[in-house]
């Protein structure tokens, strides 16, 4: 090996110089730069999401049910946002000349026992219910993903401790806590959302933890480490995008769970209180009239079912769309 020609850095083959110079001629060979700087650079991430976003959209479009669900959900949201504003009635405005009416031209969904327009109350209630649900889904996903990612990626003692915490939250029956809080302090839409968020995150955390345990053993994670990437970068830039599918599906499931839990609370009379409407307490108010005026129960109930179904279909479509290895349709 002594007589072998050794290539020194100064006398590298000519091709070497040529290639370097085309990159602006300023490729530093010895200068080391802090790898962390690049994380703050959002340019690169944009480039990823643009082509990724376009491909995701192409795949999503082919998922017909999800596309319909997205449209319906958009229309519902629009109705909830614009409806109360366009309506000639306020949601707590009473009309004593029209008590407990069935659907009519003036009141398409009818009126309740104290003369309030059920349509404006349904839209306003949908607004509160959907807001609670979205807030819960976002809160649980963020908390759950961070906790799950840290537990799964680092493992060991950190994982053991976080896992204990996850299990502790999992065994606490959410409904009981909600009942106690509701009875003792009363419930507001934001209060319920916050509470649900803090009670429901372990479901996401467990899923994310499992996914991270699985993905951190993959060779591309080793390859990322070998390329000099830091732990947060590996966790959130390399592993997390691989777990989007299950996370999105579970987040959408939680939207349904949150709407139903909120409705349950209202139905048990400890949820958001009259006159503030939610889809749940509208049903609760009308439950005695199920025989005489079923529309008062069926309409808000139908909205709950529609929202929950649409959100779940949307989640299905997103899961498939976010997986770049899925067939290109």
């Amino acid at each position: 090996m002594t007589d072998r020609e050794v290539t020194h850095p100064e006398e590298r083959p000519p091709g070497y110089e040529g290639r370097s110079s085309t990159v602006g001629g300023e490729v530093p060979e010895t200068e080391h730069l802090d790898p962390e700087h690049v994380i703050d650079e959002l340019e690169g991430i944009e480039a990823v999401s643009r082509s990724f976003g376009r491909q995701t959209w192409d795949r999503f479009r082919r998922h017909r049910i999800a596309l319909i669900a997205a449209v319906v959900l958009f229309l519902l949201t629009l109705a909830f946002v614009v409806g109360p504003w366009l309506s000639p009635y306020g949601f707590s405005e009473q009309d004593f000349t029209a008590l407990n009416q069935g659907p009519s031209l003036a009141h398409p969904f009818g009126t309740d026992t104290i003369g309030r327009d059920i349509m404006v109350r349904t839209f306003q209630g949908g607004r509160f219910s959907l807001r609670i649900a979205l807030f819960v889904a976002i809160l649980t996903t963020v908390i759950g993903t961070i906790v799950g990612a840290i537990a799964g990626y680092f493992g060991g003692t950190i994982d053991a401790l976080l896992n204990k915490l996850i299990n502790l939250f999992l065994i606490v029956p959410a409904l009981v806590i909600l009942l106690v809080v509701g009875v003792r302090w009363g419930a507001t839409p934001n209060g319920i959302a916050l509470l649900l968020g803090f009670l429901l995150w372990p479901a996401i955390a467990r899923i994310v933890r499992g996914l991270f345990l699985q993905y951190k053993e993959q060779e591309f994670v080793l390859a990322a480490r070998a390329a000099g990437a830091r732990a947060p970068r590996i966790m959130f830039r390399h592993i997390l995008p691989n777990t989007f599918g299950p996370i999105v599906v579970n987040a959408t499931l939680l939207v349904g769970v949150a709407i139903i839990l909120e409705s349950t609370l209202s139905f048990l009379s400890v949820g958001v209180q009259d006159p503030v409407p939610t889809l749940g307490n509208l049903i609760e108010k009308a439950k005695g009239q199920i025989d005489t005026k079923p529309s008062a129960v069926l309409i808000p109930g139908g909205f709950i079912v529609a929202i929950t179904l649409c959100v779940n279909f949307l989640g299905d479509g997103l899961r498939d769309a976010l997986d770049p290895t899925a067939r290109k349709g």
Binding site: G24, L33, P35, E43, G44
Partner: peptide, 16 residues
């Protein structure tokens, strides 16, 4: 993007 990332982790001054 994986190769670009590999370059820019160590040389953030190189444009995308």
């Amino acid at each position: 993007n994986q190769i670009i990332e590999g370059i820019r982790i160590h040389h953030p001054q190189i444009s995308k």
